[in-house]
């Protein structure tokens, strides 16, 4: 029954923008942040620890807003993708 997040995301349609709509100051995550909660709360697994460092990618983002509200360290700058880009849900 268990599916990987990648497989789950594959059911969605996204028109990728070249510009990232979310930027993360990963220095904050790597130094002062003690919980690194975004690695657990982002439903699209956009935040991962790779070689002991926070790695963020916006490509899989489904624009839910969880990281905008979960990060209490001021590391996440959050916007929607530019006009005509990002996630499209067929069902929603």
């Amino acid at each position: 029954m268990s599916m990987s997040v990648k497989d789950r995301l594959a059911t969605n349609k996204t028109k990728l923008s070249k510009k990232p709509h979310i930027t993360v100051e990963t220095d904050i995550c790597d130094t002062t942040c003690t919980h690194k909660c975004t690695t657990r709360v982002c439903p699209a697994k956009c935040f991962e620890i790779v070689n002991d460092k926070m790695a963020f990618q916006y490509e899989d983002c489904i624009e839910c807003g969880t990281c905008l509200h979960a990060c209490d360290q001021g590391a996440v700058s959050w916007k929607f993708p530019e006009s005509g880009h990002g996630i499209t849900f067929r069902l929603g």
């Binding site: 029954m1 599916m3 789950r8 995301l9 059911t11 969605n12 439903p43 699209a44 489904i62 839910c64 807003g65 969880t66 905008l68 509200h69 849900f89 067929r90 069902l91 929603g92």
Partner: peptide, 16 residues
Amino acid sequence: KPLLKGGKMVEYSAHV
């Protein structure tokens, strides 16, 4: 679990 038998996951989404 038994409810999902015979079904197919067709969309994954999330929202605050």
